[in-house]
Structure formats: structure tokens, C-alpha cells
């Protein structure tokens, strides 16, 4: 894999931008896709948000100061794009964020790109009820198996705070799954 500094350098030079951008997309597309998918749940929406994320990266790469790692910056853009997308969607439909989350989960059963069983649907219902931060931390830690240090660089939260959020999220999810 190409070193981040080299890639960044090539992204900033107009003559190498397009080639480097292709490398960037191919390196991070899957990781960013799954990050977005677990927030917006539906494949078509994830595709839109992922494309917008990369377009933002392309257009703003010269504004990236290098204060954090490139992938943290892209994850932050992907997170913001996903949350903004959901906010716009709920505003457009005239419903609350919680209502939108409920609808998104109930739509999963009819989604051709979801083949989860009963327990996996219940897990999504439980995740939908978590506060936003706990939801992000849980998905990043549990499904994407990211390190707390990496999550900390993306969400700008201390490792201690993240551990507390993850612990609380797991406790709530287990309690929800134990019901009935």
C-alpha cells in the first residue's frame, strides 16, 4: 500500500492528482462504504453518500492541513455526510430523527441487500435506539474492529470517553436483545 504522505503529495500536484485520486478511492472505498452503510442502512443511500464523500475529498484536498491522518479526515467527512443526509431526509419527510430510524430499520426486511435473520434485525432496532455517539462508536468498534485510538482521531473524543460509550452501548444492546 502506498504511504499516506506520498499519496497526499501526489494528490496536491495537479499533474498527478487524477492517478493518486484513483488510488485513494480504491484504497478506502470499502472501508468508507461500510462505515456509511451502518449509519444510513440502505445501499442506494450509502452509494450516494459515498460518492459525495469522495467528491468532497477531491475538491478540498488542498485545504487539508495534514493535522490529522488522511483517513481520519475522510472518515470525518463520511460521518458528517451521512448524518447530514439523514437530517435532510427526516426534514424532507417531516418526521423526527427517531421516527426516521424506526422506518429505516423496518424497511430493512424488504431490502434486497439485507439478508439478516430475526436477531440481526433486532440488533439493528436496538442500535437505532442508541444515542448518535454511542451508535457510531459501537459500529466502528464492534463491526469495523477499529482501535480506540483510531476512533478517537476521527470523532475527536478521548479514548476513555469512547470506552465508556462502547461499554454503555453494549450493555444497552444486550439488555434490549434479552427482552421478550
Amino acid at each position: 500500500m502506498i504511504a499516506e504522505e506520498t499519496l497526499l503529495d501526489e494528490l496536491r500536484r495537479p499533474e498527478t492528482l487524477d492517478k493518486a485520486f484513483e488510488v485513494l478511492v480504491n484504497t478506502y472505498k470499502e472501508r468508507l462504504y461500510w462505515h456509511i452503510r451502518r449509519i444510513v442502512l440502505n445501499h442506494d443511500d450509502s452509494d450516494d453518500v459515498l460518492q459525495n464523500t469522495f467528491i468532497k475529498v477531491y475538491k478540498n484536498i488542498n485545504g487539508f492541513k495534514g493535522e490529522s491522518q488522511l483517513y481520519s479526515w475522510m472518515y470525518r467527512i463520511a460521518t458528517n455526510e451521512s448524518l447530514t443526509f439523514l437530517k435532510k431526509k427526516s426534514n424532507k419527510m417531516g418526521i423526527s430523527d427517531a421516527e426516521l430510524q424506526d422506518r429505516m430499520v423496518s424497511n430493512l426486511q424488504a431490502d434486497v441487500y439485507f439478508d439478516g435473520d430475526e436477531i440481526q434485525i433486532k440488533l439493528q432496532e436496538a442500535i437505532a435506539r442508541l444515542p448518535e455517539k454511542q451508535k457510531l462508536v459501537f459500529n466502528m468498534k464492534y463491526f469495523q474492529e477499529m482501535k480506540y485510538e483510531e476512533i478517537s482521531g476521527i470523532l475527536h473524543t478521548s479514548v476513555g470517553g469512547l470506552k465508556a460509550s462502547y461499554h454503555l452501548a453494549v450493555k444497552k444492546l444486550e439488555a434490549f436483545l434479552k427482552e421478550d
Binding site: 452503510r37 451502518r38 442502512l41 445501499h43 460518492q51 467528491i55 441487500y113 440481526q120 434485525i121
Partner: peptide, 28 residues
């Protein structure tokens, strides 16, 4: 393992990732 399922049941269409870069290029 806790008591949570390890996979979440999400899928992507076959070859979705292969065509992604050109889709983004044409959008740009």
C-alpha cells in the same frame, strides 16, 4: 462473543466496488 451477532446481514451488489471510481469521475 457477548450475545450479539458478529455479522449484521448487510450485502452489496456484485461488482459494486469495481465501477465506483469511474462513477465518481463522471460525477466530478
Amino acid at each position: 462473543n457477548l450475545m450479539l451477532p458478529k455479522s449484521d446481514g448487510f450485502k452489496v451488489p456484485d461488482t459494486y466496488f469495481e465501477g465506483l471510481h469511474s462513477k465518481i469521475q463522471s460525477k466530478l
